[in-house]
Design a binder for these strands. Sequence first.
DNA 1: CGACTTTGACCTGCGC
DNA 2: GCGCAGGTCAAAGTCG
Length: 287
Amino acid sequence: MDDHHVEQKNTYLEEVSFTSLSDCLQSSLVMDYNSLEKVFKFPPYSSPFQPVSPSSMGHIVNNPYLNLNSNSPVVSSSSNEAELKENPNDKSDRMEDNEGDQHGVGESSKQLTKQGKKKGEKKEREARVAFMTKSEIDHLEDGYRWRKYGQKAVKNSPYPRSYYRCTTQKCNVKKRVERSFQDPSIVITTYEGKHNHPIPSTLRGTVAAEHLLGHRGGGSGFLHSFPRHHQEFLMMKHSPVNYQSVGSMPYEHGHGTSSYNFNNNQPVVDYGLLQDILPSMFSKHES
DNA sequence: CGACTTTGACCTGCGC
DNA sequence: GCGCAGGTCAAAGTCG
C-alpha cells in the first residue's frame, strides 16, 4: 500500500522535476494565496482566463497571463497591499477574535461576534495554503478531524464549495474544499490557519506518511493525504515570504505581466500556508 | 447520544 | 443604495 502510494507520489514529483517533496516545497511551488486568488480568481474556474485545457493544470500552464517558459522557480507574490485590502474586518475574524467564545455558541455568541468587533479594527488574515489534488474524494483524509459547517454553490461552477473547521477545541483552522469544474478529478483544498495541536494519533497513516517524507513533527495534515486514496498532489503554494526575492509578481489582474514560472507544463500550485501547515519543511527555506 | 452533515437564512464586503 | 457572491451560523436530520 505505502509502496504504491510512494510510487504515485514520486511519479508526480518527477513530473514537476522534483526528486522529493521537500525539494518541491523548497524550490518553487511558491505562490502566495493572494496571487493565486488573482490568477485563479480562486477558485480557478472563475479566473479571467479562457478555459483552455481540460485540466486545471493545463489551465494554469496555458494561462496567457503567466510566463511559463522559464525554468526558474516560481513565484509569487502577494502584495501586502492587496492583502490589507482584502482584510478589512475580515469576517473570519469574527470567530477567531472571540476565541474563548467560539464554543459559546448561541445567539449571544453570534451577536457578540457581530457587534463585539470595533469598527475599522483589522486583523491579519490567517495564512492560507491551497493545493490541488487529483482525487475522486472531495474531502481528503489529511490526518485531522474536520467538521463541515457549510457548503455553498460556486459561481460558474457546477460543484459546490464545502467549508470545514478543525474539530479540535481552540483550533481555528479552517479549510475549503472544492472541485475544479474544468477537471472534476481535481480537488482544490485551501487551509487557513495553523493547527495548535498534534495530529490525532488514532488516525492511520500518520507514521507512514512521516516516514515516507522523512519528516516528523506535528502539523502537516496535508502531507498525510498524499499517500492515501489515490490522490495525486498537484500543486501547492506557500506564503508571501520569498516572492520578492524571486522576483515578481506584478500581475494585477489582467495586466498579463505576471511572472510565474513553472517547470515545463507541470502542475503548479498553490500556495500559501504550507509553511504554517508544514512549518518544519519551510523553516529551512525561509531562514 | 454524541459527532457529524445538510441546508436555508443571515451577514458582510465589493462592484456598479 | 442595490444586488451579488462568499462565508458562516445554527436548527434539523443522519449515522454509528
